[in-house]
Design a protein around this nucleic acid. Structure first.
Lengths: 334, 334
DNA sequence: TGAGAGTGTCGAAGCGCTTCGACGACCGGC
DNA sequence: GCCGGTCGTCGAAGCGCTTCGACACTCTCA
């Protein structure tokens, strides 16, 4: 508790050793006798020393900060986003790193800026589009990066995500096991498909393939997020395909509205219509009735992304593509 | 486009000036002739120079980074949170600062760490509780900070928020103008009141005071976030107080459920029951029918918080308390 | 018993930037 | 025509840390 900030030199003096010795105690990069180590550690806590981040970054060429690039725009379900973000921060701390928050609307310029200024050692990007303009930049950057989601041309980049194709298929499979023969997918808002966001398309592909493989009939529809739109979509679906007895919903914001619409159309869940959702667990559990769902393992994806980026920082070779297997949780809706 | 990172020395050489001159061009802290400035600027863009953040922080004792401390836990509505976060990032960039993301679960230790290591120049904290354990720490820190929300004992700290008391009152006033005499407030989940979160309590106080002032009758109820709970709450409310014709909803997650419950109970909005919400604009607009609402001016609050913290960094004196006046947007639900 | 191989520690050289004091060059005023 | 003032620029001294090479020991084993 001295006047102002404590430096490594003060610690060294207090412990009666050289500055470099203190540094080596902290980094563990050279062997230090148990005795000296203890004295240094004692001085550190006695003085309340915290290494200066700037000085450390300057000397070591490592800032111990990673950038997290988040989208903040329409069609992206924000709570899911935050689950990822929370997981990334927590995981990064476990590797003794902090997280710098970048919004996607600063775009490529922001990424270039934080990388060139050595503000961050590495980057994690979320909500990557099929044809993402930042992808080429990432490729030429010296700093390692990991994408959450897959662009159309991952070429050399490291990507992690839930295996949405398998998730779509898993839902179909489950409905098939339950004996449903005519089913439908209610997906993301159409703007999301148009933008070419990967996860929405891949779920649809998995759905379509599995429908064929199991010899079912099925339609895949985009789905907006207001109650009225959802109501219309569901009503029209049941008019056009009256035999529909199973629904796959891949749209967190619409899940509640779908259930509301079914209630209003006098279809009971799961008696008249079975519903499987692809959404975070808490959304599925909070619904009425609680929904059978493939959970979006936000925490796991975030953690995995950080693990990969840290491995790359250490110079280890990591797989280009990491797909997390879908897990189906069976609840009251099927 | 040279081999690796470009330093200020290379820029100086390229422009034929001293290193310090380049620095002064960049910071504007000494007068530089137009001619020299142009040459330096040209060299900078020719070489693609970006100042090294670590070196700059070390020499200037300013990292140009502010910390944003976010909660990520139950009862906090995440999308609103993200709106704040986005606004803070955008505003900070406008002051040439970046944002380091800290989660509240690292608690006081995390704050102390980033402050002591000079990783950040200042802090913005969200979702402050009435009796927040981080408040005393903030007070003894050399780094300036701004709270979004009010603790019970702000003593000396700088706080910004929507004036929730006025917001609660404004809703009552609006319902009174429309001729409603028996009204109710559906608030946050009870856990939020128990934790002593300020905004929930203050809205309730404003509601209660205004009900008295206008000579109405009114009850204030906590409100959970699952459909079933909301349905029960609304049903019981209408049983116990059959004359209730106006509802104030201050719970973003429950807004949709409240409307669903009213539909199921055959009450038409606004014909049988008028509904005013306190929630972000997009939630109010997306509801069916679109809701009259006091908007939570997330962007404005975030921007204001950053402005205040920057003022404090510059050594300016700022007001301890900034309350943003509520704005009522009238839509179809009243 | 002495060469060789570790250990444990130290001193000093940067890392890339900001900032302070110094110093010509040029200005206007007397 | 000399003096005091800007104005514009420069050189050098750090900022607090990491890391490299050096060095004094202590073991080991031929």
């Amino acid at each position: 508790m001295n006047g102002r900030t404590v430096t490594i030199a003060q610690v060294a003096k207090h412990a009666g050793v050289a500055v470099s010795t203190v540094s080596y105690v902290l980094s563990g990069k050279r062997t230090i006798s148990a005795d000296t180590r203890r004295r240094v550690l004692d001085s550190i806590s006695a003085l309340g020393y915290h290494p200066n981040a700037g000085a450390r970054a300057l000397a070591s060429k490592r800032s111990n900060v990673i950038a997290l690039v988040l989208p903040l725009r329409a069609g992206v379900h924000v709570p899911v986003m935050m689950r990822f973000a929370g997981a990334v921060v927590t995981a990064a701390r476990r590797f003794d790193h902090d997280v710098l928050l970048l919004t996607a609307d600063e775009g490529a310029a922001g990424i270039r800026r934080v990388a060139a200024s050595a503000l961050v050692d590495a980057l994690v990007l979320m909500d990557v589009e099929m044809d993402d303009r930042r992808v080429p930049l990432l490729r030429e950057l010296a700093e390692p990066s990991v994408l959450i989601g897959f662009p159309a041309e991952p070429g050399g980049l490291t990507c992690v995500d839930l295996d949405f194709r398998a998730a779509g298929a898993r839902c179909v499979e489950h409905l098939a096991e339950r004996g449903h023969e005519e089913i439908a997918l209610l997906g993301a808002p159409s703007v999301v498909y148009e933008r070419g966001t990967g996860f929405a398309r891949r779920t649809r592909e998995g759905f379509v393939e599995a429908v064929e493989a199991h010899g079912l009939t099925g339609v895949a529809l985009p789905c907006e997020e207001t109650f009225d739109d959802v109501y219309e979509t569901v009503r029209d679906l049941l008019l056009d395909h009256p035999g529909t007895s199973g629904l796959v919903v891949h749209n967190e914001a619409a899940v509640g509205h779908v259930l509301g619409a079914l209630r209003q159309l006098d279809r009971r869940v799961p008696h008249d219509v079975a519903v499987v959702a692809i959404c975070p667990d808490d959304v599925a559990e909070r619904a009425s009735p609680p929904l059978t769902s493939v959970l979006i393992p936000a925490e796991e994806v975030g953690r995995e992304a950080v693990r990969l980026v840290m491995d790359k920082l250490e110079g280890r070779v990591v797989p280009h593509s990491t797909l997390l297997a879908p897990q189906l949780a069976i609840r009251a809706s099927t």
